[in-house]
């Protein structure tokens, strides 16, 4: 038997590079400003969960969506980062915040 996830497969795969959207919700959000617009790498598929941004308005059930662990080198996040190039930051991001990397048109 097929499960719900067979019909709604995860869009992104581990190792893939994606961009965190530059967008601005009102009222509540779980994606900090410092991550907006960043190019990150998917490090883990965390399964599906109710998006906390919807849970915050009383939606306690239904509408689960994929979320991922993503990582970014600290030296890409902060220009003046004081530490080796290998230092990383990891954070969970729901799929509605992720965009495929746009290829340069020129």
């Amino acid at each position: 038997m097929k499960s719900a996830t067979d019909y709604n497969p995860a869009t992104y795969t581990v190792g893939e590079q994606v961009r965190i959207a530059m967008k601005f919700p009102v009222g509540h959000y779980r994606v900090p400003m410092y991550m907006r617009g960043r190019t990150v790498t998917i490090s883990k598929n965390l399964g599906r969960h109710i998006n906390p941004e919807e849970e915050a308005f009383g939606r306690n059930a239904g509408n689960e969506s994929w979320y991922y662990m993503v990582r970014i080198p600290q030296t890409e996040l902060w220009q003046e980062y004081n530490g080796p190039d290998t230092d990383m930051l990891e954070i969970e991001i729901f799929e509605n915040w992720l965009e495929p990397i746009k290829k340069d048109i020129t």
């Binding site: 009222g27 509540h28 849970e55 915050a56 308005f57 009383g58 306690n60």
Partner: peptide
């Protein structure tokens, strides 16, 4: 009891 869930409480501390 989902009368006020944790995420609603967080939103409430932000707003």
């Amino acid at each position: 009891h989902k009368i006020v869930n944790t995420e609603e409480k967080r939103r409430g501390t932000e707003n």
